[in-house]
Write a protein that binds this DNA or RNA. Structure first.
Lengths: 270, 270
DNA sequence: GCGGTCGTTGCGTATGCCGCAACCGATTGC
DNA sequence: GCAATCGGTTGCGGCATACGCAACGACCGC
């Protein structure tokens, strides 16, 4: 808490973080995640600490392979250690564990990219991705937070919540393309339809030319705990919607069954 | 330094880590990645520090969402923050970029041409090539689409797919030389062998006089995302297969590690 | 070549972390 | 039902340790 006269950015929630040096080190990771690359001086300025302090912290992170420097004398960026940790994290989540073989098969059957998402912090957190056979990885979404109202996964996740949670999670509905749903009433109607038909569609709503379809994954209690989606270029998807929806719903059901859904009386009120 | 009477595992490289508390915190992440879950007491024992120290560190990690505690009785495990960081890392991950220095070294060590390929549209797409030291140079394959069943790279890429994808991708197996595999059953057996031994060989199967060997490159999820190969005139390769295979597998492993392939035993409770 | 910037390193100091011990809630044994 | 145990959590004081300072070498651009 020294130099309480930190004039630059007062909005940093510096307090309430137990160990100062660790907190600073982890903040460095977040800075690197945000900026992609950063030098020691830049990091030091962002933390409001001395250059040498930032360097020691970065060096410690580097010793654990969490960051790496681009060249001998260069900037720093996130390292492979992060990916190892992420692999262990994903392996721990039983949703991912159970869903992975199903995702593989779904990706093979449709030829498109398959994703698993969960609700996290008012957005859709992408947990896993299996690339389709068509081509190179279009985009790796894993770890990204994506708006709920502009994606098929998001709609599915929202459809599992009680209606008033909608206002709490999504006070506003920003627009990304002309197709993005921006009116609450329209979104509510859409979610109602998702609940009815058991899947969601998003055509050009997040990105023009990108279409995705998603279905809910339920746990033993019947709650929607995750969402599984198939996505690809609109022109490839739109001609095969029925087939993909069928495969998608089968896959979602399969994962739900593995998680224990349907094995006991479901007590969801109508 | 606390009393390093931690008798269990002496191999901890305690020294040479700049900031002590940060080093300990990051070690906690690694412990959690390895064990899946751990309590404060367990973590403290593993680090050789006091319970309270471990708790502060874990609490700081928790404030950054890198760990989270299970609701019931307060064990800790890796959190979603790790996935966010991984998303930022994966965004810049490029197979070619990560593989290039390794390819260079492999080309120098073997003196032969090294290639990187991925699966694309039912064939092997050559992404990168590093020429060997020999004067006798093959042509540049980069950008070419090459049949999957007649190349070592193709076999490796196929070996990462589920069996029924084979029929979809390769309805027919055209012949290029007398050595080309043209029967599905034979190809299946060959792929099985590739999976077992971790590399593939193709001798005179695409072009008479051309031999290639390839090994799989895997991403964090364990999928085969690319293939790396060493190729050259049959007469030069055939006498050094064991050496080349060893170097090749080392190189493939190195690239896989850079892409996050660090697979760990997960001791999830049954 | 010269000023500016960046990553890196030795050093002294007081800052912030660590170990101690006690607390609390839950679970177990008798 | 009570005591004993175990595991996570918290106040406190001493002292190790992480920090800021300043200087260095390397690089870049004017």
């Amino acid at each position: 808490m020294s130099t309480s006269a930190a004039e630059q950015d007062g909005q940093r929630d510096a307090a309430a973080a137990g160990v100062q040096s660790v907190d600073r080190a982890l903040t460095i990771l977040e800075v690197l995640a945000r900026n992609g690359e950063a030098g020691v001086t830049e990091v030091a300025a962002e933390l409001g600490v001395h250059k040498s302090t930032a360097f020691r912290l970065v060096a410690t992170l580097e010793a654990h392979r969490l960051v790496e420097q681009t060249e001998d004398r260069g900037k720093y960026r996130l390292g492979v250690g992060v990916l190892r940790l992420a692999g262990a994290t994903a392996a721990r989540l039983d949703v991912v564990q159970e869903a992975r073989p199903v995702c593989r098969q779904l990706a093979a059957a449709t030829g498109e990219t398959v994703n698993i998402t969960v609700l996290s912090d008012s957005s859709a957190l992408y947990l896993d991705q299996v690339a389709g056979t068509s081509a190179l990885q279009p985009h790796n979404w894993v770890g990204q937070h994506i708006p709920l109202h502009a994606t098929s996964n998001g709609k599915v996740l929202l459809s599992g919540l009680d209606p008033d949670a909608l206002d709490r999670l999504l006070p506003k509905l920003p627009s990304y393309t002309p197709q993005t749903i921006t009116r609450k009433a329209e979104l509510r109607a859409e979610l109602e339809q998702v609940r009815d038909q058991g899947y969601a569609v998003a055509v050009d709503e997040l990105e023009v030319g990108l279409t995705a379809m998603a279905a809910p994954i339920r746990n033993a209690g019947g709650d929607v705990v995750a969402s599984i989606s198939v996505s690809g270029p609109t022109f490839r998807i739109e001609q095969r919607t029925e087939e993909i929806v069928r495969l998608l719903k089968e896959a979602a059901l399969e994962v739900s069954l593995r998680l224990g859904w349907g094995h006991r009386q479901v007590t969801t009120p109508q």
